[in-house]
Write a protein that binds this DNA or RNA. Structure first.
Lengths: 220, 220, 220, 220
DNA sequence: TATGAATGAGCTTTCATTCAT
DNA sequence: GATGAATGAAAGCTCATTCAT
């Protein structure tokens, strides 16, 4: 029990280290995390980390990439399904929002990584850009297409929102940050928050039969 | 001839230090900021900081509080004006949103402090809570009141959004994070973003004359 | 006695540190020297070294430069005196050799620094070149001039040695290395070694009246 | 088909490791050399080194001994030939000097090992002494004998050089150090350097027919 | 024989903090 | 009030050495 006999597990070690790194980085942030604590949590010693990773920075970057992988895969699959071409636009938007709530709010790992990325954006700009390219960009591009198409077809109200599809993701982002910043001190019902966002957004986007000109309400 | 300068300085020193601290903390984050750099930027030496502040943590906390002060004052004034009691609800919501865009997006200091708070939330939970109590909480309380009242009076569609007034702030928060995370790499037109958010939200909240039951669109 | 009260001596500290560094580097070599030992020997703590020097390399380089200074000054003075223009060439060469024995053999500091430079030449090529430029080069240039002039005037035998003035310094270099490599295990009488070298070199350089052609003995 | 290669390897491994060690130690010095680099250069892994050698120190010591072997053998053969008893003393001295230039200057391995020994003398005093016993000592003893005998027979000028035969090796040592310290930055023509040394030394040692008393030139 | 994952002591370097002046 | 030399507790990283396979 004292010295857990030296075990070799080349296959699993890196993953174990990255899992440990995730917990530590999330808890303390990049700079305040000690690699020794990561090692201890992974059940190895400092030296072992340096056997698998070049330095602290590489541990962080690799961890973000590796733990983002399932999220990226899910998102790619979701975006590839092209359900929007066959489904009612309201239904599609509901699905879309729920998917994002699922991804960046309900999934702790994905949510924490997003927050970590925001918090450490200044130190890891390339990582942030990478994240944009693989996740945010494609998701926004698809939304943009759906919105523009819906407006052209008249199933959506014509609105400047078409140019800011990111607005549809804002609620999920807000909740992500809220939950992680206030931790357990200000709990929120995720499902209700999501449904409220859907209510607001769908009503905001669907045509208003009472109006001749779209955007009538917009000018102040 | 010498004196006046020295005297003036004496009173301004703490403020100069906090200004310098703001720049450094924003650039590097809490842990990676060196008090020596703060001192250099403020034109003093490390020792001087310790004359005015107990330690690094106090410098950070005091900086956040002190530099938040004008924002808090503005917000308090805005919330106290009670214009919502006299003005058309659409106009009020427009003003409200624009005010927040002004505050947490266009005002660099307020915006950066918000981001700092998000990034360092784990290390300074009390500061986050304080921020909630003085800024976020009151703003949300007032919004909640306005929304609930509007729905009761029928000038707003009855909707679960009433219980999540924070949804109205989500767009500004999203833009704040976007700008600070992507820095200058992905510029956004703030005014247009704001107007798009207003369009979405107002249309999402105002009554839909074509429908009997509110929320008809909500169920999936 | 326990904690030698923190004393400030900005003026003397760097010198004390360099003196301590000299002893440690000489004893252990560059790589094997611990800055902590240097600090202890100088009566300060590790941190203090970093207050005055950027890093270990700078400590080494600065030490070599600083402790070479008196030697360089002596050499410059010696070379500037131009006694060779007024003195009998035998007398001059005797002075010259004795001066170098004094410098790189009898003077422990200069001798050790020379050996350090030889030992660490691979890691500090610029330092070696600097040493050449300030010490070796000028000394050889002057010797070359004296030898060439002497041979032209016929007071020295014409010989290929003119092109290799460094041969006159070889004995002192050899003794330097001998003493430092064998430490006290193989003591040598410096003065006798020097006089033997002078005997060999003067007899080797002065004209041989029995010969018509110089260099008669050289061909094998 | 496989076997022969493996078998051959098996016997050559230690030698391959020592060759690799030589290159690394020469390039970086003892302390700065990583056994991992030695292993990589030898085409094996770190563990293998520990199979053949107890530790880093033994690798170094064994390498010096092993790679010195051919040099020692050559020297022993040369010294055993006793050509000095049959050959003209000038011819003998020429041969002697040329042999040493060949050995410690022209032969890169022997030259580097000599320099390594000088550089690391402080850490490996026994190795230095061993080197003295097997190489330097015998060579000097023989020289001493030849010089003393020559002076007694009158074929050499009587001189204090008899007691410092090492002076005859000084030029080769100087050139060895020069070449290794200045690497390729200050090239020297080895053959000419050698011939100049021979010229200086022979003329310095052979009798001067113009003088009654030997050593007349020596007193300053 | 050989491997290479794992260890852990040790080293350089950093920096918040102190304190004599 | 202000300085800045000095401290010392980390923390990142390296590498000789070990050992299960």
């Amino acid at each position: 029990m004292d010295k857990p006999i030296r075990t070799r597990r080349k296959e699993e070690r890196p993953g174990e280290i990255l899992d440990a790194a995730f917990e530590e980085f999330v808890q303390k942030g990049y700079a305040a995390t000690r690699l020794e604590d990561v090692a201890a949590r992974a059940g190895v010693t400092k030296g072992t980390i340096y056997f698998y990773f070049q330095n602290k920075e590489r541990v962080f970057v690799t961890m973000v990439r590796e733990l983002s992988r399932p999220t990226v895969a899910q998102a790619e699959q979701f975006l590839a399904e092209k359900v929007h071409e066959t489904v009612d636009i309201s239904d599609f938007l509901r699905m879309y929002l729920r998917f994002f709530y699922q991804t960046i709010v309900a999934d702790r790992r994905a949510g924490e990584i997003l927050r970590l990325l925001i918090a450490e954006a200044g130190r890891f700009p390339e990582l942030v850009d990478e994240h944009f390219q693989t996740l945010v960009g494609p998701a926004l591009a698809m939304l943009h297409e759906v919105l523009a198409d819906g407006m052209k077809r008249g199933v959506l109200r014509s609105s400047p929102v078409a140019e800011f599809p990111v607005l549809l993701l804002a609620p999920a982002l807000q909740l992500n940050i809220w939950l992680l910043a206030y931790a357990n001190r200000r709990p929120v019902d995720i499902a209700q928050h999501c449904e409220a966002a859907i209510d607001l957004i769908l009503n905001g986007l669907l045509p208003r039969p009472d109006e001749e000109r779209s955007g009538a309400l917009t000018n102040g």
